[in-house]
Design a protein around this nucleic acid. Structure first.
Lengths: 198, 198
DNA sequence: GTCTATAGGTAGATAGAC
DNA sequence: GTCTATCTACCTATAGAC
């Protein structure tokens, strides 16, 4: 079946998202022009507006997509067992989700400033929902006497910062494999909440 | 002694730095124009170039000043005692230094991308020097049997991310005082390296 | 759906008067 | 040291041809 001349729907769209993600992560949202994104995709700047209302939507859609994907994947993992087992599983989940998505993670933590107030509020709500999953694990561990944590909210924010920081220095092919890094961080995390290691 | 008309050397200079810091931290380096900085200072854009060679130097000087100040302050603190005592002191030092400088810290971690290659290399070297101070403490603790850490380098990067993350959510007048936060993080940090708490 | 062209505005940086 | 004025370049977004 013949396709309309010049029609690339379903191809150009994702390429625009990919190019925007890569360029925003590398240079920062404000430093990247629509012309640069268009050049990366291989079209002229005006053509981008067939796929996004404006530059802001491009950023917002990337961040929202990342957060909903993250939360859906965590809920699908359905962590069960003792608080320590769930904490260990959360740690491994977080690392496995984030390591292959370093560009997106970087964006999600660095470019919140460049969202409009309304868009920021939506992303913040999603982040809070994710954090709450971890905080629940910590609360349960404290209640059961498995964990020693002075303040679960502080520990939650601290642990997420600890884990997400990996994306700032991890490089594929570096000194440690992803599995080694994962094991290292599991030890750090479980020890940090005062859990006895198995 | 009469001052030259319109001369404000020693006043405008620091004001330019302050305004650049505040605006860069709030909106991001790339999103802030020299005209905005000038307006914040209360001069016209052209006058800024009496105090900085260009916009890049403005950013670089802020970051370099922060890093050298940080390292000098740490060395002046001259942490001594057992590895656990030194780790506790490092944690408190890091938090006390960073909490009142949230704008600068934010810049130092977010705007490295916007440095030229040469300027980036200089800042990276200073950061490495700071990290090494913590890594030495961890090495000593492992050697003495006080700490259980699988990989000191990983733990160093992790702990710095953990501690620096405070600046992302701390607000003066929030639920916890700075002293409470400090105590919370000391517990987390010391437990994370497998140290027995005093 | 993509192109060219362009509107309307702002950017960093400089020149020369005072 | 600061001002006004300006240069050159780039920006986002839109209009209309194909």
């Amino acid at each position: 079946m013949a396709r309309k001349q010049g029609s690339h729907a379903g191809i150009t769209g994702p390429k625009v998202q990919d190019a925007a993600l890569r360029l925003f992560a590398q240079h920062g949202y404000a430093a990247v022009s629509m012309r640069q994104i268009a050049a990366e995709v291989g079209v002229q700047a005006g053509a981008l507006y067939n796929y996004t209302a404006d530059k802001q939507s491009l950023l917002f859609d990337l961040l929202r997509g990342n957060m909903t994907e993250l939360i859906d994947a965590l809920d699908a993992a359905a962590l069960t067992g003792t608080p320590l087992a769930r904490l260990d599983a959360f740690t491994r989940f977080h690392i496995r989700f984030h390591l292959p998505r370093r560009d997106t993670v970087f964006l999600s933590y660095m470019e919140l400033r460049n969202l409009t107030d309304e868009n920021f509020a939506q992303i913040a709500e999603l982040r809070r929902a994710y954090e709450d999953r971890l905080e629940d694990i910590l609360h349960d561990g404290v209640a059961s006497g498995d964990f020693t944590v002075p303040d679960c909210r502080v520990a939650t924010l601290g642990l997420i910062a600890l884990l997400t920081g990996i994306t700032n220095w991890y490089r594929p092919g570096g000194r440690l494999t992803a599995a080694e890094i994962e094991a290292n961080y599991c030890t750090l995390v479980c020890q940090s909440v005062g859990a006895r290691l198995a």
